[in-house]
Simulated scan of single mutants.
Amino acid sequence: MNFDLIKAVVELVQQFSEQNEAKAVYSNNLQGFTEWLTTSCKSGSEQKDPDWRGKQLESSSDIIINTLLIRMSRYAKSYSRSSISNSVFTSQDDIIYLISLKMIGAMTKMELIKRNIQEKSSGIVIINRLIRNGWAEQTVTEKDKRTKHIQITEKGLSVLEEHMDEIGKVSKAMVGNLDYSEQKLLIAILSKLDEFHDNFYRMNLEARDLLDNVYKRLN
Rank of each mutant, 00 (worst) to 15 (best):
N2L: 14
N2P: 15
F3V: 08
I6S: 11
K7T: 15
A8I: 15
V9Q: 15
E11Y: 06
F16L: 09
E18I: 13
N20C: 14
V25W: 11
V25L: 12
Y26F: 15
S27L: 15
N28K: 08
N28G: 08
L30Y: 05
Q31T: 04
F33G: 01
T34I: 15
C41T: 00
K42I: 09
Q47Y: 11
D49N: 05
D51E: 13
W52L: 15
R53V: 01
R53T: 10
R53K: 14
G54E: 06
L57Q: 12
L57W: 07
E58T: 08
S60F: 05
N66P: 01
N66A: 10
L68A: 12
R71D: 12
R71Q: 11
M72E: 15
R74S: 01
R74H: 05
K77C: 06
S80Y: 04
S83A: 14
T90I: 13
S91L: 06
D93F: 04
I96T: 12
S100G: 10
L101T: 00
L101E: 02
K102G: 02
T108G: 14
T108H: 12
K109W: 09
M110Q: 14
E111M: 07
L112R: 00
I113T: 10
I113Q: 14
R115F: 15
R115Q: 15
S122E: 15
I126E: 06
N128Y: 09
N128A: 09
I131L: 04
N133R: 07
W135A: 01
E137M: 05
Q138H: 02
T139Q: 01
T139P: 00
V140I: 03
E142Y: 06
E142V: 12
D144I: 09
K145F: 05
R146P: 00
H149C: 00
I150K: 00
T153K: 13
T153Y: 10
E154G: 02
L157Y: 04
M164Q: 07
M164A: 02
E166L: 10
I167Q: 05
I167H: 08
G168T: 02
S171Q: 12
K172D: 11
M174G: 03
M174V: 15
M174R: 07
G176N: 08
G176P: 02
G176K: 05
G176D: 12
D179W: 08
Y180A: 11
E182L: 05
L185K: 11
L185A: 09
L186E: 03
I187Q: 09
I189F: 06
K192P: 00
L193C: 07
L193R: 08
D194R: 00
E195M: 03
F200D: 07
F200V: 07
Y201F: 10
D209F: 04
D209S: 06
L211S: 09
D212A: 07
